[in-house]
Nucleic acid binder design. Structure first.
Length: 605
DNA sequence: CCGACAGCCCAACATT
DNA sequence: AATGTTGGGCTG
C-alpha cells in the first residue's frame, strides 16, 4: 500500500496471516508489483486488459521505468505478460457461449460482483465512501477481497474455469490467452484451419467461397434475416396433463454430420450429385466426397455423445475423473452449439450461406416428419420448437415407436427430454409453463419471468408459480384457481390503492443497447429516462441498466431515483399486470377483469 | 467496432 | 385510428 498524508490506519478486520507492506513512493510500489508479476506463470485479472495492467504500465512510464523492465506487453486491446499467461476473466465470462452454455445464464451482467455472486456465492466488500477516503485497513480489505474473488472464479468447482480454458485450447488449437479472449467463431476457425493444414488442404479465401457457392435461396420469416430458420408449432392452448417433451440430440450438428454438409459438398460441381437434393431448397449435396466440417463436427458430436457424456455419469469412476469428463463434454457442447451458426455469419472465414440454410432446412424437414409420424401413430402434438415435440399423454410404446422410427428413417437420435406433470399453453409461441413431476416449474418466454418487469409484478407472478407447482391433478385446479385469483387481486389492490412498499418495486429495468445519443430512429422509454439522468450529469453508455417508473406527466417515464410516489401512473401498471397474467389466466379459464371485480357490464361503461 | 444463427412476443414509437 | 417499425428480452 502507498503511504499517503492524512490517511488513517483504521481498524483491521483482516485475518492475522495477511501481511501488509507499505511503500513511501508509488514508483517503489510499482516496481515491487512488477517483481511479483515476473514470478507467476499465470496472472488472473478481472478487466486487466483494459484497466489494471494497462494502468500499471502507464504509471510506470511516468516514473521513467523502461519498457524492458516491465513484465507487461501492451497490445491493441489486450495486455499480455512477457513471462507468463495473463487471463482476463472479464473477457472470458463476457463470451456469450460461455455465459449461456457453460454457466446456464446464471449471471447476467458481467461484473466481478455479479459473476462472483452467481458462481461462488460471494460478494465484494461494499463501501459507502469514495475509495480515496478509505482507511488503510478498509482499502486493504476491499482489495484483498477483489483478489480473492478473482482467484476463486478460477479455483471453484475443482478449477473448472482453468480446465475449461485448457480443453478449449486443445480442441481449438489456440493458446490460452487467445481462447480465453476470443469468440466461438475464432475457436472454430482455428480448429478447422488446423485440420486443413494437417491434411495438406488449401484453405479457401472467404470471397471465393461466396463467389462459387453463392448466397441463400430461401426467404426468412423475419425481415432482415438472410434465410429461413426453424419451425415453431402453433401451440394448443389450455392445460394439458402428462406431457412428454421429446427432442433431437444436438440437432444441427447431427444434420451436418448425417447430411455431409460443408462448403465443399453443398452445391458441388458433379452433375451426378444434382439429384441429391436438400428438402425445401434448390441445393444439392455431394455423394462422392466427405466434407471436412461434416467429418470434424460429426466426430466431435460422437465423441461427446458416445464417450465423454457417458463417462461423466459413470459412477464407477473416481470423482475427479468424472469431473474432468464433465468439463470436456461441456466444452464440446459449447463448440457444437455454435458450429452451425458460424456458417451463416459473415464474420466467419468459412462463411457459406447455403450450408447454414441447408442445415436449417433439414431441421425443418426432420421436425415436420416427426410430427407427421406422431400423428400417424395416434399421438396428439401440442407444441414444438426447432428440435422438440410436446406430446399429450403418450403411452410408453408410442414414445418408443417414434424414437425407433426417427433413428431408422431420419438417422437422427430422438430422446425424451422431460415429462411435465402438466403444461399450460396460451395461444402464443415460445410462451408456456410446465410443471415437472418433482414440482419444479419451467417458465418459458412469459413476461412474468423477464428481468425488466417491476418487482411488484414479478413477485405476484412468482407466487402464482409456487401455487401452480402444488397442483397434482385436474381436481386440484379448482382451489388453485381461487388462490391465483386472490394473488392477482392482492397485487391489483396494492397498485390501485397506492400501497406499494418502495418506489423501486415499481421500477422497470432495461439495458441500453447503445449510448443514449445513438438512438436516432426512435426514443424508447428507457432512453427517455436515460436522457433525464444525463441532464443531471450522469454519464451513460451501452450496457448500462436504466431503472425507471411510469408517471402521469410527459414524457411518461422518470428514472426511479428522481421520481416520487404521487406522480406514478397507476393505470399503466395495472395494464401491465393484466397483460403479464393474461398469458396464463387465459389457459386456466380465468378472466382478469372478473378477478378484479369488474362485471362484464361495468367494463363497457 | 464487433463479430454463431433465426423466430416470437410485447410495448412504445413513428408514419400514414 | 390503423399500420408498420424499432428495441429489448426471450426460446431454441
Amino acid at each position: 500500500m502507498l503511504k499517503r498524508e492524512e490517511v488513517r490506519e483504521g481498524i483491521s478486520k483482516l485475518s492475522p496471516e495477511v501481511e501488509i507492506v507499505y511503500f513511501d513512493s508509488e514508483e517503489k510500489l510499482i516496481r515491487e508489483i512488477f517483481n511479483i508479476l515476473w514470478e507467476y506463470p499465470f496472472v488472473i485479472t478481472f478487466n486487466g486488459d483494459d484497466f489494471d495492467l494497462r494502468y500499471l504500465l502507464h504509471r510506470a512510464e511516468r516514473f521513467g521505468i523502461r519498457r524492458e523492465e516491465t513484465p507487461i506487453e501492451l497490445g491493441r486491446r489486450v495486455c499480455t505478460l512477457k513471462y507468463g499467461i495473463h487471463i482476463d476473466l472479464y473477457k472470458f465470462f463476457f463470451n456469450r457461449s460461455i455465459q449461456v452454455y457453460a454457466f446456464g445464464n446464471k449471471y447476467r451482467d458481467v461484473t466481478l460482483e455479479e459473476v462472483s455472486k452467481a458462481l461462488i456465492g460471494k460478494s465484494k466488500v461494499s463501501i459507502e465512501k469514495p475509495l480515496t477516503e478509505l482507511t488503510y485497513m478498509e482499502l486493504a480489505e476491499y482489495c484483498l477481497r477483489d483478489a480473492e474473488l478473482t482467484y476463486e472464479l478460477t479455483s471453484f468447482n475443482n478449477e473448472l474455469v482453468m480446465k475449461l480454458i485448457l480443453v478449449l485450447c486443445r480442441i481449438s488449437r489456440m493458446p490460452m490467452e487467445d481462447v480465453s479472449r476470443q469468440g466461438v467463431s475464432r475457436w472454430i476457425r482455428s480448429f478447422l484451419y488446423y485440420e486443413h493444414r494437417r491434411k495438406n488442404m488449401l484453405i479457401p479465401n472467404t470471397e471465393d467461397i461466396l463467389a462459387i457457392k453463392g448466397k441463400t435461396a430461401t426467404k426468412a420469416i423475419i425481415k432482415g434475416k438472410k434465410y429461413k430458420g426453424a419451425i415453431v408449432v402453433e401451440p394448443v392452448p389450455g392445460v394439458h396433463f402428462n406431457v412428454a417433451v421429446l427432442d433431437f440430440a444436438s440437432l444441427y450438428p447431427s444434420i451436418i454430420k448425417v447430411w455431409n454438409l460443408g462448403y465443399q459438398t453443398v452445391l458441388c460441381p458433379h452433375p451426378e450429385c444434382k439429384t441429391n437434393l436438400i428438402p425445401d431448397t434448390p441445393h444439392w449435396v455431394c455423394t462422392k466426397k466427405r466434407a471436412l466440417e461434416s467429418l470434424l463436427i460429426g466426430a466431435l458430436r460422437d465423441l461427446r455423445v458416445k464417450w465423454y457424456k457417458p463417462k461423466s455419469k459413470d459412477k464407477s469412476l473416481p470423482e475427479d475423473k468424472r469431473n474432468w469428463y464433465e468439463v470436456i463434454q461441456a466444452a464440446i457442447k459449447v463448440i457444437l452449439n455454435a458450429s452451425y451458426g458460424v456458417f451463416g455469419a459473415e464474420s466467419f472465414d468459412l462463411y457459406c450461406p447455403p450450408v447454414a440454410e441447408a442445415t436449417a432446412a433439414i431441421a425443418r424437414h426432420s421436425l415436420t416428419q416427426v410430427i407427421k409420424r406422431a400423428k400417424e401413430i395416434g399421438i396428439e402434438v401440442l407444441y414444438g420448437d426447432t428440435d422438440s415435440v410436446f406430446l399429450k399423454n403418450p403411452t410408453k410404446e408410442q414414445i418408443e415407436e417414434l424414437i425407433e422410427w426417427s433413428e431408422k428413417q431420419l438417422k437422427m437420435g430422438l430422446d425424451v427430454d422431460k415429462v411435465y406433470r402438466y403444461a399450460v399453453f396460451s395461444s402464443r409461441k415460445k410462451n408456456y409453463l410446465g410443471v415437472m413431476e418433482d414440482g419444479r416449474v419451467d417458465v418459458k418466454g412469459l413476461t412474468g419471468k423477464k428481468r425488466h418487469i417491476p418487482k411488484i409484478i414479478k413477485e405476484a407472478f412468482d407466487l402464482m408459480k409456487e401455487r401452480l407447482a402444488q397442483v397434482k391433478s385436474s381436481a386440484d385446479f379448482e382451489q388453485a384457481k381461487k388462490d391465483i385469483s386472490q394473488i392477482v387481486l392482492d397485487c391489483y389492490l396494492k397498485l390501485k390503492r397506492r400501497k406499494w412498499e418502495k418506489l423501486e418495486d415499481l421500477a422497470f429495468h432495461v439495458v441500453l443497447g447503445e449510448t443514449p445519443a445513438n438512438y436516432v430512429k426512435t426514443t424508447p422509454q428507457h432512453v427517455k429516462a436515460a436522457r433525464l439522468l444525463e441532464k443531471r450529469g450522469v454519464e451513460l453508455k451501452a450496457g448500462d441498466l436504466i431503472s425507471f417508473v411510469k408517471v402521469v406527466k410527459e414524457p411518461h417515464v422518470k428514472p426511479v431515483e428522481l421520481a416520487t410516489n404521487n406522480e406514478i401512473d397507476v393505470d399503466k401498471y395495472i395494464g401491465y399486470l393484466q397483460s403479464t397474467f393474461e398469458q396464463v389466466l387465459d389457459a386456466l379459464g380465468l378472466d382478469f377483469n372478473e378477478i378484479i371485480g369488474l362485471t362484464k357490464l361495468e367494463r363497457f361503461m
